[in-house]
Amino acid sequence: MNEDWVLYEVFIRSRSGLEHKHVGSLHAADARMAIEHARDAYTRRQEGVSIWVVPSSAIVASDPGEAEALFEPARDKVYRHPTFYAIPDEVKNI
């Protein structure tokens, strides 16, 4: 008989206004249990106000082998950043 529980990834919102952040994983048989386990394991010291759990198998990750193709092309698009533009000091509020 199967006794293997599902691996879930846990994301915690540490404070109201912040985004959920990945904190680790755990095993649970169902989603409700996964939330409870996340609460009991990852928020023992008031680390969170909200929990997401996602089956690890549901996460699609980028391939490190493609990192150059995915991320390098952004490097030379310096004009996306505000510091690219020279504005005289006399001009205010911009």
Binding site: W5, L26, H27, M33, H37, D40, A41, R44
Partner: peptide, 11 residues
């Protein structure tokens, strides 16, 4: 029965 249950019962 599992590590997770240990944590829960401990709480």
């Amino acid at each position: 029965p599992t590590l997770e249950e240990d944590l829960a019962l401990g709480n």
